[in-house]
């Protein structure tokens, strides 16, 4: 078993508001192993991005981590002060956001931004930093001649490759990629995912890949965590989970994804009825039970936990 880079234990994030608290993340635990790509999947509002934000310490006030622990190797990182957190952010954990146009500074050249990142995080000279920046661009298949180009001079896919070069530039142990290809065309998406996969293998970096697309999960990840309404519904090895999904929500997500492989005009896509509940109106018991076709009587009253099994569902656990 390879070593654990990141360990999240019973994480609970709350947002206080007028009538009590909202709980966007509730009792989530998982580990990320070295060099592993783990996928977080779920619908909008499932808590995928919030989990990423919690790990890197970017939860906006008034939200805060109420309970639980986040360990980066031997170091506990959920209660760090600003300067300690800055030592980790970008250096040991970096982030790739959905929209490359808003995550790059439009007024500075990409070379400049790469050099700045490297100088901030690594103890190298300016010349060395520039050499590293050029090497970084070459790695993501961008012509080093474009070192002095501005973000607007690149296409969406190229910009996202620049962002990946930035994320890798400080040689982090963990990269959190939040919907990195949602804004891109499918053909470009395939290139960017392939690149992300290859580079993380080479650098030995682990990746948390946040997406709502089961296809992306299947093509890219080693393990996958399915989130629903801020709770972990199911977690496991990607191939096993896709072949034999347990949680009715996972089954629904897989079945509702159209495929280029089969189906025709007469195919009725499977649909999960209803929508994700709002955080201020979470149902009792299992949060998924109002949309679930296999709900049992106690699903409405008792909340299932994921401890013994890899799935939080009463169909597989005894009461």
């Amino acid at each position: 078993m390879s070593e654990t880079i990141l360990s999240v234990r019973n994480l609970r994030v709350v947002f206080p508001h007028r009538h009590g608290v909202l709980v966007p993340i509730d009792e989530i635990s998982f580990d990320v192993k070295k060099g592993e790509i783990i996928g977080f999947v779920g619908e909008s509002g499932a808590g995928k991005s919030m989990t990423g934000a919690a790990i890197i310490g970017l939860i906006d006030p008034p939200g805060y981590i109420e309970r639980g622990e986040i360990w980066l190797k031997e170091e506990r990182i959920d209660q760090l002060g600003i300067s300690a957190a800055n030592r980790i952010r970008g250096r040991r954990i970096s982030m790739v956001f959905q929209d490359p146009l808003t995550s790059l500074n439009p007024l500075r050249t990409i070379g400049d931004q790469l050099v700045e990142t490297i100088l901030t995080h690594l103890p190298v000279s300016a010349d060395e930093a520039k050499r590293k920046a050029i090497a970084g661009l070459e790695e993501v298949d961008i012509d080093p001649e474009r070192f002095n180009a501005y973000p607007h001079e690149f296409s969406g896919g190229m910009r996202q490759r620049v962002v990946i070069a930035l994320a890798l530039s400080a040689e982090p142990e963990l990269i959190i990629a939040d919907e990195p290809t949602t804004a891109l065309d499918v053909s470009v998406q395939a290139q960017v995912l392939e690149l992300l996969k290859k580079l993380c293998r080479e650098h030995g970096a682990s990746v948390i890949l946040i997406t709502h697309d089961m296809g992306v999960i299947a093509e890219t990840t080693d393990r996958v965590a399915v989130l629903y309404a801020g709770r972990l519904a199911e977690i496991g090895d990607t191939q096993t989970l896709l072949r034999d999904p347990q949680h009715p929500y996972t089954k629904g997500l897989i079945a509702s994804t159209p495929s280029v492989e089969y189906g025709d005009i007469s195919t009725e896509l499977f649909q999960i009825t209803g929508a994700m509940p709002r955080l201020d109106a979470l149902p009792d018991g299992c949060a998924f039970h109002p949309r679930c076709g296999q709900a049992l009587a106690h699903c409405a009253t008792k909340r299932p936990h994921i401890e013994r099994n890899r799935v939080a569902c009463w169909l597989y656990n005894d009461v």
């Binding site: 499918v186 053909s187 998406q189 395939a190 290139q191 697309d213 089961m214 296809g215 992306v216 299947a218 093509e219 191939q239 896709l242 072949r243 034999d244 999904p245 089954k251 629904g252 897989i254 079945a255 994804t257 495929s259 280029v260 492989e261 499977f270």
Partner: peptide, 27 residues
């Protein structure tokens, strides 16, 4: 078109579409 695409461009588009495994269960 999807079964036997004629142009390289179409083939590229089909190839890049993400796939879930072929033997996934159907509900």
């Amino acid at each position: 078109l999807i079964g036997s695409p004629q142009s390289d461009y179409t083939r590229m588009l089909i190839r890049s579409a993400p796939r879930i495994r072929d033997d996934r269960p159907v509900i």
